[in-house]
Structure formats: C-alpha cells, structure tokens
Design a protein around this nucleic acid. Structure first.
Lengths: 211, 211
DNA sequence: GGCCCTATGAACAATATTGTCAATAACAAC
DNA sequence: GTTGTTATTGACAATATTGTTCATAGGGCC
C-alpha cells in the first residue's frame, strides 16, 4: 500500500471577474427562489462550484453579496422593462404585445418575484425604484396625439398615470400569484393567463382612446 | 457576604389556551414583518414574554408553529374579506366603499403582506386559497340583474371573473407596494392611494354596468 | 527554473437557531 | 397538607451560518 496520499487537491483557478460572475449567477437564482434573506453563502458557493470562503474573498461579506446581486437584478429588470416597452411603443394596436412582453420580462427570469421580495423585505425608507414616471410620460404623450386625431376630449396626466399603475400592479401581481388568483376565481386551463391579459388589453384600449 | 442566592425565579403560569394565544399573537406580528421563514423561536418567545422552550412545549416544533400561525392568518384574512365584501354587496353604488373596505382589510393588519409572503415562499403544489370563486359568482349574479334592468347586453361569467381578478391583483398589490408604485408613477401626496382607488372604482363601474 | 501575485480551500472560531431534558414551580383536587 | 398534573425554564446538545486565518497552488512574468 502506498502511504495513501490524498489526491493533490484539484483546484480550478478563475480570474476575479469570472469568479464574481459565477457567484452572482448562483446568488441570483437563490434571490429569485428564496429572496434576499434566503441567500446562504454555502449554497451559493456550492452552486458556483467553490467553497464559501472564496465567495467571501470576492465580496467581502454576505451583506455585500446580497447588495450586489439585488442591485444587479434591479438593473436587469429596468433594462428588460425598457426593452419590452420600447419594442412596441410605436403603435397602440400593439398594446397586447407590449403587455405580454412586460409580463414575460417579469415572469421568465423571476424578476417579478425579485421586485415583490424587495418590496416585502426592503425598508420603506428606500423603496424599490422602477421609474414608472418615464413610462407615464411617454404613454401620455402618445395618448394625447391619438385622442386629438380622433377628435376626443383630452385626458389628464393623472388619468394616464393611474392606467400605468394599474397595469404595473396587475402584471407584477400576475407574475407572482397569477395562476393562483385565476384558479381561485374559477378560471382553469393553460390559457387562463393569456386570456386574462387579452381581456385587460381590451379594457385598457377602450379607456385609453375610447369614449 | 450572603451566598448571593439568585432571585427565586419569578414565574408566571398561564393555562395552555392563553399561552398559545400569546404565542400566536407574537408569531403573527413576525409573520407580517418578516414572513414565514423570518419567524424565530427566540424572538417570538421574547415578544410573548416567555422562554423559547415554552413555545416548543405548546407547539411541538417551529414548523408546527409556522403552520398554525399561517393557517390562522389565512382564516382571519378570509373572514375579513367576506365581511368587507358582504357589508356593501347590496348596492353597486357602494363599490367604492367596498374597495376601500377590502383594501383596509389587506393593509391595516398586514394581511396583504402575509398573502404575498405565502405566495412567494409557498410551494406551487399547495397554492394560497382565497376562494375568489364565491366572490365571482355573487358579483356576476348581481351584475346580471342590473344589466337586465338597464336593458344592456349580458356579459359572460368569465368577464366578471376577469374583473374580480383584476381588482384582487390591484388591491393586493396596492397593499404591498402601492405607495412605492404611485410615487414611481409621479403620483405624490397622501391622497394618491385613495385617488387611485376612486379612479379604479369609476373604471370598474363603467365596465360592469356601462356600454 | 525562480519569483510574485492572488485565488482557493481546509480548519477553525463565533454566534445563531432549533430542539432536548430534567428540575422546578404553580395550581387544582383531595 | 399532600399529591398529581403540567406549565415553565435553565442548561445543554446539535446543527447552521457567517466570518477569519493560513497554507497552498495556479498562472503570469523575468
């Protein structure tokens, strides 16, 4: 028998940049599934394929890691929302497509859950910033033109803001408890979600440039 | 020097019922502020004025306590929602009052936050049950009568269900991130919330028995 | 090869959190 | 008063979680 020398510790060595990327990716998954308070250094390290002191080496502390991954998630959310909105902002007939795009942005990558988690766990002193004011302004400008073309009375800026808030609450809520709510209301079936958003689109269109 | 005998441990003795009540009350506060996963035996025990083994004595395990307090919260939520809805279900002109009552039920005691916590942390296998189907049926029955009286075309049951889901998402979302959303949309002021719900009431009334 | 920088992880420390156990004290029944 | 029941808690155990230390190894550079 050889003196049973342990395997010489196979180590992988990454540069700081890719190590941080791996860690942030793993932490982001935990952020979506368990929220900021559910992030555990050991689990993140295991997911990233390293030991937890390495995570601390790159981020200093759990607190700093959580801040980094939350900040990164918020940036990603804002970017995807802007993309989803701008992609179909030219034509109000594409409102349905825009709602689907925003809903996808909130659902597919779990961004809606992250927003809700930050709202629940965050301090009221520093609220989540999703910059809806820009959306309101853009929507209202387009709406004003459309209504003038149709010869309709203009609507107030506040009215448009209320529409945007309602849509934001509806889509964000849908991404977190949509299926549950629909099932609770007796709306079964795989297409209950799309049907609800299509209905919402019609309701919004009638209000935005109707009457 | 006396042999420094410790104070003879002043103990309070409650019956099992009031002890459980104290514990559940303390745990409910933690449930609202930190969610199910944020409930700590030591903190609950401290809030209830006892040691943590006493909590375990009355509930067996942390898991059982969390289940008990969540179950109790859901019952309370359901009861308050039923009350809020029934209190003004006789007259559609009181829709605004009903929305305010439901919103209060979700906001005042943190029930909205609890629902959102459970939606985020709960398993998709056992979704939160708020029994919206009853609300949908009652609303649709009243709506059918009103529309017939007015000589309007009837609306589908699904349309009414969509209205209820939208209201549920809007009010639940409002109770969790309402102020943030309104501020983000540029709607400042203490009355931004009431103004939004009043606007929502008008939108709903036009859809429910208009056109 | 020799040197330097640093990413890596094993071992450890410190605290938190849940759960167990046994002794004790409060209260009711007799 | 005595006894029995049980609510209460201090002390402890076991595990989880964050953070520190230090030796080591990977890779670039001369």
């Amino acid at each position: 028998m050889s003196t049973s020398r342990r395997k010489p510790k196979p180590r992988v060595r990454r540069d700081a940049e890719s190590a941080r990327a791996l860690i942030l990716e793993a932490a982001a998954k935990r952020l979506v599934s368990s929220g900021p308070s559910g992030i555990r250094l050991q689990e993140v390290a295991a997911d990233a394929g390293m030991s937890h002191p390495t995570v601390l080496h790159h981020f200093g502390s759990r607190e700093a890691l959580v801040k980094a991954v939350c900040s990164r998630a918020l940036e990603s959310i804002h970017r995807q929302l802007i993309e989803a909105i701008e992609a179909s902002s030219g034509d109000e007939a594409h409102l349905a497509a825009m709602l689907e795009a925003v809903f996808d942005a909130l659902t597919k990558s779990g961004h809606g859950r992250v927003l809700m988690w930050l709202a629940l766990e965050g301090q009221p002193s520093e609220p989540v910033d999703v910059r809806l004011a820009d959306v309101v302004d853009a929507t209202h400008a387009m709406r004003k033109v459309k209504r003038r073309e149709k010869g309709l009375d203009p609507k107030t800026h506040e009215d448009t803001a209320h529409v945007v808030v309602l849509v934001a609450l509806a889509l964000l809520g849908s991404s977190v408890i949509g299926p549950t709510m629909l099932a609770n209301a007796g709306l079964e079936g795989d297409d209950a979600g799309p049907r609800f958003r299509a209905w919402l689109t019609r309701l919004l269109l009638r209000h935005l440039d109707g009457e």
